[in-house]
Protein backbone atom coordinates (compact mmCIF):
# COMPACT_ATOMS: atom_id res chain seq x y z
CA UNK A 1 0.00 0.00 0.00
CA UNK A 2 3.00 2.30 0.33
CA UNK A 3 2.77 3.98 -3.13
CA UNK A 4 -0.77 5.19 -2.81
CA UNK A 5 -0.14 6.20 0.80
CA UNK A 6 2.31 8.90 -0.21
CA UNK A 7 4.90 7.36 2.05
CA UNK A 8 6.98 10.49 2.64
CA UNK A 9 8.48 11.78 5.87
CA UNK A 10 5.87 14.44 6.53
CA UNK A 11 2.94 12.05 6.05
CA UNK A 12 4.67 9.52 8.25
CA UNK A 13 5.00 12.08 11.07
CA UNK A 14 1.35 13.13 10.62
CA UNK A 15 0.19 9.54 11.05
CA UNK A 16 2.40 9.14 14.11
CA UNK A 17 1.26 12.35 15.81
CA UNK A 18 -2.26 11.60 14.54
CA UNK A 19 -2.60 8.63 16.87
CA UNK A 20 -1.32 10.81 19.74
CA UNK A 21 -4.06 13.34 18.83
CA UNK A 22 -6.62 10.55 19.30
CA UNK A 23 -5.29 9.88 22.80
CA UNK A 24 -5.62 13.49 23.99
CA UNK A 25 -7.73 14.07 27.06
CA UNK A 26 -7.38 10.44 28.06
CA UNK A 27 -5.46 8.14 30.38
CA UNK A 28 -2.85 5.61 29.27
CA UNK A 29 -2.42 2.91 31.91
CA UNK A 30 0.50 0.59 32.69
CA UNK A 31 -0.59 -3.05 32.77
CA UNK A 32 1.40 -6.23 33.38
CA UNK A 33 -1.08 -8.86 32.18
CA UNK A 34 -4.25 -9.36 30.15
CA UNK A 35 -6.42 -9.19 33.27
CA UNK A 36 -5.14 -5.73 34.18
CA UNK A 37 -5.52 -4.67 30.54
CA UNK A 38 -9.20 -5.68 30.67
CA UNK A 39 -9.70 -3.67 33.84
CA UNK A 40 -8.02 -0.66 32.23
CA UNK A 41 -10.18 -0.87 29.11
CA UNK A 42 -13.32 -1.33 31.18
CA UNK A 43 -12.41 1.74 33.23
CA UNK A 44 -12.12 3.87 30.08
CA UNK A 45 -8.36 3.96 29.39
CA UNK A 46 -7.58 5.25 25.88
CA UNK A 47 -4.54 2.95 25.63
CA UNK A 48 -2.50 0.55 27.73
CA UNK A 49 1.25 0.28 28.20
CA UNK A 50 2.23 -3.39 28.36
CA UNK A 51 5.18 -4.09 30.63
CA UNK A 52 6.64 -6.92 32.67
CA UNK A 53 6.77 -4.98 35.94
CA UNK A 54 5.37 -1.55 36.75
CA UNK A 55 8.01 1.03 37.71
CA UNK A 56 7.32 0.66 41.46
CA UNK A 57 8.09 -3.08 41.17
CA UNK A 58 11.22 -2.42 39.11
CA UNK A 59 12.42 -0.08 41.84
CA UNK A 60 11.68 -2.59 44.59
CA UNK A 61 13.11 -5.63 42.85
CA UNK A 62 16.09 -4.10 41.06
CA UNK A 63 17.99 -5.95 38.31
CA UNK A 64 18.13 -5.06 34.62
CA UNK A 65 14.75 -3.93 33.33
CA UNK A 66 14.24 -4.88 29.66
CA UNK A 67 11.52 -4.89 27.00
CA UNK A 68 8.55 -7.04 28.06
CA UNK A 69 8.15 -10.53 26.64
CA UNK A 70 6.47 -10.45 23.21
CA UNK A 71 4.24 -13.33 24.32
CA UNK A 72 2.85 -11.25 27.17
CA UNK A 73 2.40 -8.18 24.95
CA UNK A 74 0.65 -10.30 22.29
CA UNK A 75 -1.77 -11.62 24.89
CA UNK A 76 -2.65 -8.06 25.85
CA UNK A 77 -3.03 -7.07 22.17
CA UNK A 78 -5.39 -10.02 21.72
CA UNK A 79 -7.41 -9.02 24.79
CA UNK A 80 -8.20 -5.32 24.31
CA UNK A 81 -9.46 -3.19 21.41
CA UNK A 82 -7.72 0.02 22.49
CA UNK A 83 -4.13 0.80 21.33
CA UNK A 84 -1.32 -1.12 23.03
CA UNK A 85 2.03 0.53 23.74
CA UNK A 86 5.24 -1.10 24.96
CA UNK A 87 8.59 0.13 26.22
CA UNK A 88 12.05 -0.38 24.78
CA UNK A 89 15.32 0.54 26.49
CA UNK A 90 16.90 3.89 25.61
CA UNK A 91 18.99 3.38 22.46
CA UNK A 92 17.96 -0.28 22.05
CA UNK A 93 16.82 -0.12 18.44
CA UNK A 94 16.73 -3.92 18.17
CA UNK A 95 14.11 -4.11 20.94
CA UNK A 96 12.23 -1.41 19.01
CA UNK A 97 12.46 -3.54 15.84
CA UNK A 98 10.99 -6.49 17.73
CA UNK A 99 8.12 -4.35 19.05
CA UNK A 100 7.42 -2.92 15.59
CA UNK A 101 7.38 -6.40 14.06
CA UNK A 102 5.00 -7.50 16.80
CA UNK A 103 2.66 -4.67 15.78
CA UNK A 104 2.41 -2.56 18.95
CA UNK A 105 0.74 0.80 18.31
CA UNK A 106 3.30 3.02 20.09
CA UNK A 107 6.78 2.49 21.50
CA UNK A 108 7.94 4.29 24.64
CA UNK A 109 11.72 4.66 24.57
CA UNK A 110 11.75 4.78 28.32
CA UNK A 111 14.05 5.75 31.16
CA UNK A 112 12.09 3.32 33.34
CA UNK A 113 13.98 0.46 31.68
CA UNK A 114 17.74 0.11 32.04
CA UNK A 115 19.39 2.14 29.25
CA UNK A 116 21.17 0.19 26.48
CA UNK A 117 23.22 3.11 25.14
CA UNK A 118 24.85 5.86 27.18
CA UNK A 119 25.13 8.27 24.27
CA UNK A 120 22.51 7.61 21.61
CA UNK A 121 18.77 7.32 21.53
CA UNK A 122 16.94 5.27 18.90
CA UNK A 123 16.73 6.90 15.44
CA UNK A 124 12.97 6.99 15.50
CA UNK A 125 12.63 8.28 11.92
CA UNK A 126 13.74 4.85 10.77
CA UNK A 127 10.53 3.29 12.12
CA UNK A 128 6.96 3.28 10.88
CA UNK A 129 5.61 2.79 14.40
CA UNK A 130 5.39 6.03 16.43
CA UNK A 131 7.52 6.70 19.53
CA UNK A 132 6.90 8.59 22.75
CA UNK A 133 9.87 9.80 24.82
CA UNK A 134 10.29 11.41 28.22
CA UNK A 135 11.66 14.90 28.80
CA UNK A 136 12.51 17.12 31.76
CA UNK A 137 12.87 20.39 29.87
CA UNK A 138 12.36 21.87 26.42
CA UNK A 139 15.87 21.07 25.19
CA UNK A 140 15.43 17.38 25.98
CA UNK A 141 11.95 17.37 24.39
CA UNK A 142 13.27 18.95 21.17
CA UNK A 143 16.24 16.57 20.98
CA UNK A 144 13.81 13.65 21.13
CA UNK A 145 11.53 15.27 18.52
CA UNK A 146 14.57 15.80 16.26
CA UNK A 147 15.23 12.05 16.55
CA UNK A 148 11.64 11.39 15.44
CA UNK A 149 9.55 11.18 18.64
CA UNK A 150 5.87 11.82 17.81
CA UNK A 151 4.80 12.44 21.40
CA UNK A 152 6.56 13.88 24.44
CA UNK A 153 5.72 13.10 28.05
CA UNK A 154 7.20 14.55 31.19
CA UNK A 155 9.51 12.07 32.87
CA UNK A 156 8.51 12.89 36.42
CA UNK A 157 9.87 10.21 38.71
CA UNK A 158 8.26 6.92 37.72
CA UNK A 159 7.19 4.36 40.29
CA UNK A 160 7.11 6.77 43.22
CA UNK A 161 3.49 7.91 43.32
CA UNK A 162 4.97 11.33 44.06
CA UNK A 163 3.80 13.87 41.48
CA UNK A 164 6.37 16.53 42.40
CA UNK A 165 8.73 15.98 39.46
CA UNK A 166 5.98 15.55 36.87
CA UNK A 167 4.94 19.04 38.00
CA UNK A 168 8.53 20.30 37.92
CA UNK A 169 9.14 19.01 34.39
CA UNK A 170 5.84 20.26 32.99
CA UNK A 171 6.37 23.70 34.50
CA UNK A 172 9.92 23.75 33.12
CA UNK A 173 8.84 22.84 29.57
CA UNK A 174 6.01 25.40 29.61
CA UNK A 175 8.33 28.09 30.99
CA UNK A 176 11.06 27.31 28.42
CA UNK A 177 8.48 27.60 25.62
CA UNK A 178 7.07 30.86 26.95
CA UNK A 179 10.57 32.36 27.08
CA UNK A 180 11.13 31.53 23.42
CA UNK A 181 7.97 33.34 22.34
CA UNK A 182 9.27 36.70 23.59
CA UNK A 183 12.80 36.36 22.19
CA UNK A 184 14.08 38.25 19.16
CA UNK A 185 15.07 36.33 16.02
CA UNK A 186 18.79 36.79 16.74
CA UNK A 187 18.43 35.49 20.30
CA UNK A 188 16.98 32.19 19.09
CA UNK A 189 20.35 31.04 17.67
CA UNK A 190 22.02 31.41 21.05
CA UNK A 191 19.04 29.90 22.83
CA UNK A 192 19.17 26.84 20.53
CA UNK A 193 22.75 26.29 21.69
CA UNK A 194 21.72 26.81 25.30
CA UNK A 195 18.91 24.26 24.90
CA UNK A 196 21.19 21.90 22.94
CA UNK A 197 18.37 21.56 20.40
CA UNK A 198 18.11 22.07 16.62
CA UNK A 199 17.55 25.71 15.65
CA UNK A 200 14.65 24.90 13.27
CA UNK A 201 12.66 23.27 16.08
CA UNK A 202 13.49 26.10 18.50
CA UNK A 203 12.23 28.60 15.94
CA UNK A 204 9.05 26.60 15.41
CA UNK A 205 8.29 26.64 19.15
CA UNK A 206 9.10 30.37 19.35
CA UNK A 207 6.46 30.98 16.66
CA UNK A 208 3.68 28.73 17.99
CA UNK A 209 4.37 28.69 21.73
CA UNK A 210 3.87 24.95 21.82
CA UNK A 211 5.61 21.69 20.98
CA UNK A 212 5.22 20.45 17.39
CA UNK A 213 3.94 17.12 18.81
CA UNK A 214 1.42 16.35 21.58
CA UNK A 215 2.67 16.96 25.12
CA UNK A 216 1.55 14.43 27.74
CA UNK A 217 2.48 13.86 31.37
CA UNK A 218 3.87 10.85 33.25
CA UNK A 219 5.88 9.97 36.31
CA UNK A 220 4.24 9.84 39.74
CA UNK A 221 0.56 10.50 38.97
CA UNK A 222 -1.36 8.45 41.58
CA UNK A 223 -4.71 10.13 42.31
CA UNK A 224 -7.57 11.79 40.39
CA UNK A 225 -6.41 15.17 41.73
CA UNK A 226 -2.85 14.48 40.47
CA UNK A 227 -4.21 13.84 36.97
CA UNK A 228 -6.29 17.05 37.08
CA UNK A 229 -3.28 19.01 38.32
CA UNK A 230 -1.16 17.89 35.37
CA UNK A 231 -3.94 18.66 32.89
CA UNK A 232 -4.36 22.15 34.36
CA UNK A 233 -0.61 22.69 34.06
CA UNK A 234 -0.80 21.96 30.33
CA UNK A 235 -0.60 18.18 29.87
CA UNK A 236 -2.83 17.06 27.00
CA UNK A 237 -3.23 13.55 28.45
CA UNK A 238 -1.73 11.51 31.29
CA UNK A 239 0.09 8.23 31.74
CA UNK A 240 -0.61 6.44 35.01
CA UNK A 241 1.85 3.71 35.86
CA UNK A 242 2.09 2.20 39.29
CA UNK A 243 -0.69 4.38 40.69
CA UNK A 244 -3.58 2.15 39.65
CA UNK A 245 -2.58 -1.43 40.31
CA UNK A 246 -0.09 -1.05 43.18
CA UNK A 247 -1.13 -1.58 46.78
CA UNK A 248 0.55 -0.31 49.89
CA UNK A 249 3.46 -2.79 49.80
CA UNK A 250 6.33 -2.61 47.34
CA UNK A 251 6.65 -6.37 46.87
CA UNK A 252 4.48 -9.45 47.32
CA UNK A 253 5.26 -11.45 50.44
CA UNK A 254 3.04 -14.51 50.22
CA UNK A 255 1.94 -14.40 46.61
CA UNK A 256 3.13 -16.83 43.93
CA UNK A 257 2.30 -17.99 40.42
CA UNK A 258 0.10 -15.02 39.74
CA UNK A 259 -2.14 -15.92 42.71
CA UNK A 260 -2.32 -12.81 44.82
CA UNK A 261 -3.14 -12.94 48.53
CA UNK A 262 -4.54 -9.47 48.91
CA UNK A 263 -5.14 -10.04 52.60
CA UNK A 264 -1.53 -10.97 53.42
CA UNK A 265 1.10 -8.54 52.25
CA UNK A 266 0.42 -8.22 48.54
CA UNK A 267 2.08 -5.54 46.44
CA UNK A 268 -0.99 -5.20 44.24
CA UNK A 269 -4.24 -3.42 44.98
CA UNK A 270 -7.35 -5.63 44.89
CA UNK A 271 -8.78 -5.65 41.34
CA UNK A 272 -11.99 -3.87 42.45
CA UNK A 273 -9.96 -1.16 44.18
CA UNK A 274 -7.72 -0.76 41.13
CA UNK A 275 -10.73 -0.49 38.83
CA UNK A 276 -12.36 2.16 41.00
CA UNK A 277 -9.10 4.14 40.99
CA UNK A 278 -8.74 3.77 37.23
CA UNK A 279 -12.30 4.97 36.62
CA UNK A 280 -11.89 7.94 38.93
CA UNK A 281 -8.62 9.00 37.28
CA UNK A 282 -10.19 8.72 33.80
CA UNK A 283 -13.07 10.94 34.87
CA UNK A 284 -10.81 13.48 36.57
CA UNK A 285 -8.65 13.69 33.45
CA UNK A 286 -11.61 14.68 31.24
CA UNK A 287 -13.22 17.02 33.81
CA UNK A 288 -9.86 18.40 34.96
CA UNK A 289 -11.19 21.93 35.33
CA UNK A 290 -14.39 21.10 37.19
CA UNK A 291 -13.78 20.96 40.97
CA UNK A 292 -17.23 19.43 41.63
CA UNK A 293 -16.43 16.39 39.51
CA UNK A 294 -12.94 16.24 41.01
CA UNK A 295 -14.49 16.06 44.47
CA UNK A 296 -16.76 13.21 43.35
CA UNK A 297 -13.87 11.30 41.80
CA UNK A 298 -11.71 11.83 44.87
CA UNK A 299 -14.52 10.39 47.00
CA UNK A 300 -14.78 7.33 44.77
CA UNK A 301 -11.26 6.09 45.50
CA UNK A 302 -10.11 4.36 48.64
CA UNK A 303 -6.46 5.09 49.32
CA UNK A 304 -3.60 5.29 46.87
CA UNK A 305 -0.32 3.46 46.43
CA UNK A 306 1.99 4.00 49.40
CA UNK A 307 4.67 5.57 47.27
CA UNK A 308 8.11 7.00 47.87
CA UNK A 309 8.86 10.66 48.47
CA UNK A 310 11.14 11.78 45.65
CA UNK A 311 12.97 14.24 47.94
CA UNK A 312 14.31 11.26 49.93
CA UNK A 313 15.62 9.32 46.91
CA UNK A 314 19.36 9.00 46.43
CA UNK A 315 20.63 10.39 43.13
CA UNK A 316 21.54 6.96 41.79
CA UNK A 317 17.91 5.83 42.11
CA UNK A 318 16.52 8.68 40.00
CA UNK A 319 15.22 7.18 36.75
CA UNK A 320 14.70 10.62 35.21
CA UNK A 321 18.48 11.16 34.91
CA UNK A 322 18.58 8.49 32.21
CA UNK A 323 18.44 9.96 28.70
CA UNK A 324 20.83 12.35 27.00
Amino acid sequence: MSEKNGNNASNSLRLKTGLAEMLKGGVIMDVTDARQAEIAERAGATAVMALERVPAQIRAEGGVARMASPRMIQKIMDTVNIPVMAKCRIGHFAEAQVLEALGVDYIDESEVLTPADELHHVDKHAFKVPFVCGARDLGEALRRIAEGAAMIRTKGEAGTGDVVHAVKHMRQIVKDMRQLTVMGEEELYAQAKELRAPYELVRMVAKTGKLPVPNFSAGGIATPADAALMRQLGAEAVFVGSGIFMGDKSRCEECSNGEHRYDRGCALAQPEVAEARAKAIVRATTHFDDPKVLLETSREVSGAMKGLAVAGLPDADMLQKRGW
Partner: peptide, 15 residues
Protein backbone atom coordinates in the same frame (compact mmCIF):
# COMPACT_ATOMS: atom_id res chain seq x y z
CA UNK B 1 -16.49 -2.54 12.10
CA UNK B 2 -13.95 -1.19 14.63
CA UNK B 3 -10.17 -1.35 13.93
CA UNK B 4 -10.91 -2.97 10.61
CA UNK B 5 -7.62 -2.12 8.90
CA UNK B 6 -5.41 -3.55 11.65
CA UNK B 7 -3.08 -1.71 13.98
CA UNK B 8 -1.28 1.66 13.91
CA UNK B 9 1.31 0.32 11.47
CA UNK B 10 -1.54 -0.02 8.93
CA UNK B 11 -2.62 3.61 9.32
CA UNK B 12 -2.27 5.50 6.04
CA UNK B 13 -2.84 8.73 4.12
CA UNK B 14 -4.05 8.92 0.54
CA UNK B 15 -6.18 10.90 -1.90
Amino acid sequence: KRNAYGRQIDSHIHE
